[in-house]
Design a protein around this nucleic acid. Structure first.
Lengths: 216, 216
DNA sequence: CAATTTCTTGACCATTCAGTCGACAGTTTT
DNA sequence: AAAACTGTCGACTGAATGGTCAAGAAATTG
């Protein structure tokens, strides 16, 4: 039996050591390739090479290109949703927003490829995760916006549209992953050690919380 | 002589009416296709079809796929740089930043494909316009950051890192083009008439200038 | 250690793709 | 309207790509 019937295999059959290892390596390689070429621009051969195996061998684990893409996208999506799920736990608006910015920036630094994969998928019209957007993500966002709305009603946050506020945080934090090349081009060699992330964190927190106008 | 030696043609020979029209249609089609599939994911056939002509005919105007990509990217880049060039004309920090946000958001609404094309190129490591980033864009940004730095020194703007401030504006405004699908999924049907852009404008201006903390 | 299962790969196939070519149609110039 | 140039396209080519298959190598199990 091939390991390809992953659904069944995961539930009923235990996966072998080699299987575990290779699927891991394939997904890492797939993230690398898909995140920089998009689905159609990536080739199975490239992914196989990057994973250090032959193409037929890769296709032994994932029968079709679509399967690889779906698997790596699913895995990425979880990482992506997690920080938002945590938003609002402490009920201190300023601290919560700072913490959310920190977490998202951290993710952009630690796993920029995942961010780019997600961005690619969305920019191509979200053909694969479109339904997730409209169901799970939308519900989650609706939940969080109502928390923000409450904070505003309580006078603990300036009256801004909560949806667009979330977009702003997404955009600014993911920018450091998605536009990494541009960021480094603008900042020069000082980005070699990723030290710019500390400055980014401080700048984002300052602007989001205090704005650009000088103290009144 | 074919119209393909565009460099020479543009300088020495006048371009025919048909040439003008067709190259225009091709570039529009190319923007459409490249912006949603990236360079490698797009096919010449797709572009030709979208331009309403056959592939050999398209290749009569642009000999190679690379040439089409380069041409449409060059054209896009100009649009992209223009708003930044205008930044700082009036020497009123708050007004200038508002105006920049407005202009960039306008661009995201009017020409989201151009924004996505640019984003794709950057996300793929800027293989084609990498040098432009490191020369022309960097010089322009350096120039604008020093204006911002002056504003800060004069106490007319809160002390934030000017580079990261520019990144923030880029990120938040382009988000509405690049992540259009996601934005619409979150906001629901109300986005059918693009009315959300007005709210986005107000939210961005408010957060950037005044921040999220309620009036102190 | 023999049988069974899992893993690996070279050779292969059908399709798609970028790009060419020659013949012909349309347009402009004289 | 003839000549010269410009534009269009069907048919093609070679290379790349997604995917298959059979046969053997490696690991696991009895």
């Amino acid at each position: 039996m091939t390991p390809v019937d992953t659904a069944r295999a995961r539930q009923t059959k235990k996966r072998t050591r080699i299987q575990e290892e290779n699927e891991e390596r394939i997904l890492d390689a797939a993230l690398e390739i898909f995140s920089s070429y998009g689905f159609r621009g990536a080739t199975v051969d490239q992914i196989a090479q990057s994973a250090g195996m032959t193409k037929p061998n890769l296709l032994y684990y994932f029968r079709r290109k679509d399967d690889i893409y779906l698997a790596v996208l699913r895995r990425t999506l979880e990482d992506w949703l997690q920080p938002l799920e945590a938003l609002g736990a402490s009920d201190d608006p300023a601290e919560e927003i700072k913490a959310y910015i920190d977490r998202k920036l951290e993710l952009s630094r630690e796993n920029p490829k995942a961010s780019r994969l997600y961005a690619m998928e969305i920019m191509q019209g979200a053909p694969v995760i479109g339904t997730v957007l409209n169901t799970r993500l939308k519900m989650l966002v609706d939940e969080k916006t109502s928390v923000i709305t409450r904070w505003i009603a309580e006078g603990r946050l300036a009256p801004v549209d909560p949806y667009h506020l979330i977009f702003m945080i997404w955009a600014t934090t993911q920018h450091y992953a998605d536009f990494d090349v541009q960021v480094r081009a603008m900042l020069g060699d000082e980005t070699a050690d990723n030290g710019h992330f500390a400055i980014a964190t401080r700048t984002l927190e300052d602007v989001f919380l205090k704005g650009l106008l000088p103290d009144r």
